[in-house]
Simulated assay, not measured.
Amino acid sequence: MDVLSDVIAIMRTGRPRSVRVEWHAPWGQQFPTVPGSAGFQVVLQGSCWLLPPGGEPVALSVGDVLFFPHGHGYVLADSPSTPVAEPHCDPLTEEGLFTSASVAGPGAATVLLCGGYQLDPARAHPALRELPDMIHLPARLGFHSELRAAVDLLGAEIRQPRLGADTSVSSLLDLLLLYILRAWFDAGHDQCQVAGWALALSDQSISAALDAMHRDPAHPWTVAELAGQAGMSRAAFARRFTTLVGQPPLAYLTWWRLTTAARLLRESGASLSEISARVGYGSEFAFANAFKREYGMAPGRYRRNACPAPPAAALPRRDVVKT
């Protein structure tokens, strides 16, 4: 797997949830902070306003995408002057994969596609920790065409579910998350506003070395070999990698190997010897010692303690009629 695919894979737990909501003015909804989740909103029809905490109102129009990678709360409303309802949305309680809803009112309709992903903060890749509290991707002609296509398909599937909708919606929600993150990194790079991990992922040389580590963590990589993957001298590569990623190449490789091992312990029935070999340790003993230093417990105990997280969703609860 490449770096971005791995970043998404290690942080996700449970199944994502989504809902297509038709809001009729006047309306104002507060979406609460939900630790351990990430949420999105997409304007499918009409317009509305984002009222961020402590910030100026932001006008949203058709095609705009909002993403809240750290589960922070926010307010959406038909107008900045509309009274805002208390939060009635708990992304962790709904059981359905997707649904549609309508919020009654006498005014014009705004249709939003919203949803949530359940995340485990303990598993978060450092690239995601650096993301801002909110990402706003305005609709612009010719930009992020794959993101727009995923939004259109997801909205259509939820509006008129057909045979196979569970599979298609689940897959499209995964694609939507990928396309949102890709669009953010691409947009930052285009605007020369990236730093840290965002720059590392858009840097062709450093990204090549990262991809090599992620695709084959069991390989006995050396700094010289990784520099060769990057097409740089050993010294220049080590300096640049450490500056962008925040730790030296082999320190990051160790972290990634143990992160991969933890995922295998949670999600597979592979033996400890198999896992140690798959992440580059020559013996089960060496792997167990390294794992305990990182996670504070032996691999066997970690596996026994692992349990699935509850599912995620993001559904409004004020005057809602589900359809």
Rank of each mutant, 00 (worst) to 15 (best):
M1F: 10
D2L: 05
L4C: 01
L4N: 10
A9F: 05
G14S: 02
S18P: 07
R20K: 07
P26S: 11
P26H: 08
G28T: 01
Q29D: 08
P32I: 08
T33W: 08
S37C: 02
F40Q: 09
V43C: 07
Q45P: 07
S47T: 04
L51T: 09
G54D: 14
G54R: 12
G55Y: 01
P57H: 03
L60K: 03
V62L: 10
D64E: 05
V65F: 06
F68T: 02
H70F: 08
G71M: 03
H72I: 10
L76N: 06
D78H: 01
D78T: 04
D78Q: 04
P80D: 01
S81L: 12
S81C: 04
A85C: 11
C89Y: 03
P91W: 02
T93M: 14
E94R: 02
L97I: 14
T99R: 08
G105N: 03
P106K: 12
G107A: 04
G107T: 14
G107W: 10
T110L: 03
G115L: 01
Y117G: 03
R123E: 14
H125I: 12
P126D: 05
L128V: 08
L128H: 05
R129A: 14
L131V: 13
L131M: 02
M134F: 08
I135R: 01
L137T: 11
R140T: 15
L141R: 15
L141D: 15
G142F: 15
S145A: 15
E146M: 09
V151A: 04
A156C: 01
E157S: 15
Q160W: 10
A165N: 06
D166Q: 08
V169Q: 00
S170M: 08
L176S: 10
L176Y: 12
L177A: 00
L181E: 02
R182I: 07
D186I: 03
D186N: 04
D190P: 04
Q191P: 00
A198W: 07
L199K: 09
L201D: 05
S202Q: 13
S202D: 14
D203R: 01
D203K: 01
S205M: 05
S205D: 06
A209D: 02
D211N: 13
D211L: 12
T222D: 11
V223P: 06
E225I: 05
A230H: 01
G231P: 15
M232Y: 06
S233M: 07
A236E: 09
F237I: 05
R239S: 12
R239A: 14
R239N: 10
L244K: 03
G246C: 15
Q247I: 08
P248I: 08
P248S: 11
P249Q: 10
W256M: 12
R257P: 11
R266Q: 15
E267M: 04
G269T: 07
S271C: 06
S271A: 13
G282H: 11
G282A: 13
S283E: 08
A286G: 13
A290C: 05
R293Y: 01
G296E: 09
M297F: 00
M297K: 01
M297D: 02
A298M: 02
P299R: 00
R301G: 03
R304F: 09
R304H: 07
R304E: 13
A306N: 13
A306I: 05
P310M: 12
A314V: 14
L315S: 10
P316F: 10
R318C: 05
R318A: 12
T323C: 13
